[in-house]
């Protein structure tokens, strides 16, 4: 008869998982044949295992590789890079300077007109709209030429 001190409840999981040495397998098996408490523990462990195994594996929501590849080889950002922004700013500044120098030549040519109409260079800049500038230009021509 197996003594109660030999209960094998704490080895039952390993027994079910085939993780015990052969002599221990035999000990658990023979003990459970005689001990109602350990036999019940074994039956419950089998039931828990069956319930666990009834749950199927889930599948990924999306393939993983495209995401990982994107992080391994990051696509260059579409943000304007500082060097590019500097180039654009330099080009803009060059354009403004060119415009001012042309304007000053025209201003020299039609200097009297500016004086006549009372528009200063600052006030022309402040108008900002090409239509107004052209109106101003033709108005000065008209004043000067006619």
């Amino acid at each position: 008869m197996t003594g109660r001190s030999d209960h094998v409840e704490n080895r039952i999981q390993a027994f079910l998982d085939n993780e015990l040495a052969p002599h221990e397998v035999e000990r658990v098996r023979s003990h459970c044949a005689e001990c109602p408490r350990c036999r019940k523990a074994l039956e419950q462990a089998v039931a828990v295992r069956d319930i666990l195994h009834a749950d199927r594996n889930a599948i990924p929501l999306r393939p993983m590789w495209p995401h990982v590849r994107g992080r391994l080889n990051p696509i260059p950002s579409r943000r304007i890079r500082p060097a590019f922004a500097l180039g654009v700013a330099a080009a803009g500044l060059a354009g403004i300077l060119l415009g001012v120098s042309v304007g000053s030549i025209k201003g020299d040519r039609y200097g009297e007109a500016f004086i006549d109409t009372g528009y200063s260079t600052e006030s022309v800049d402040a108008l900002q709209t090409p239509a107004t500038l052209s109106e101003l230009y033709f108005s000065t021509l008209g004043t000067n030429g006619s």
Partner: peptide, 28 residues
């Protein structure tokens, strides 16, 4: 390995979206 890793993480975390996120991080 993506299906076993995802299934493992889904049981660990209890959320499919989080499992996807952590699985992607794992593979990265």
């Amino acid at each position: 390995w993506e299906t076993p890793v995802f299934a493992f993480l889904e049981r660990m975390l209890g959320s499919s979206e989080e499992a996807q996120e952590i699985a992607q991080e794992t593979f990265f």
